[in-house]
Simulated scan of single mutants.
Amino acid sequence: AGADQRFSVAVAAFGQKLRDEDQTANFGYDRIAEIADAARGADPFGYRAEFLSLVRLASSLDGSK
């Protein structure tokens, strides 16, 4: 899959993780950040970097660790 598609998967997984969906029960924030970082590609406006910051912030605020 291309970088845009892989990044989209990370964004979708993040949304599901925030909603505490069953589909992402074994899918942690670290894995989401790993996929997004590997698929970052061109980021001329910094939106993908900002997304990674949000994933890290959510991970730090997650009390279920």
Rank of each mutant, 00 (worst) to 15 (best):
R56V: 04
F7L: 09
A10P: 04
D43H: 10
D22Y: 03
D62Q: 10
Q23H: 02
S60G: 01
E50A: 15
P44G: 11
L54E: 15
Q23V: 14
V55G: 02
F51V: 11
G15K: 06
R40N: 08
A58L: 10
T24H: 00
E34N: 13
S59C: 11
A12G: 04
A33N: 09
Q23I: 14
F14P: 01
N26Q: 14
A3E: 10
Q16M: 13
Y29G: 09
Q5W: 07
G46W: 02
S53T: 12
G28F: 00
L18C: 03
Q5L: 11
F51G: 03
R19Q: 09
L57S: 14
A49E: 07
R19S: 11
A39T: 07
A49I: 01
K17F: 01
R6F: 01
S53H: 08
R40V: 14
P44S: 10
A42M: 05
D37A: 08
A1N: 10
V9W: 06
N26R: 15
S59R: 15
D30V: 02
S53Y: 03
A10I: 05
S64G: 09
D37G: 10
S60H: 05
A10D: 03
R48H: 00
F7W: 11
F45K: 15
A33Q: 05
Q23G: 08
A49R: 11
Q16P: 00
G41C: 07
D20A: 04
S60I: 05
F51W: 09
D20Q: 03
R31G: 00
R31Q: 09
D30P: 02
A58M: 09
K65G: 13
A13V: 13
R56W: 01
V55F: 06
S59V: 07
F14T: 06
D20W: 00
A3S: 07
V55K: 11
G41T: 08
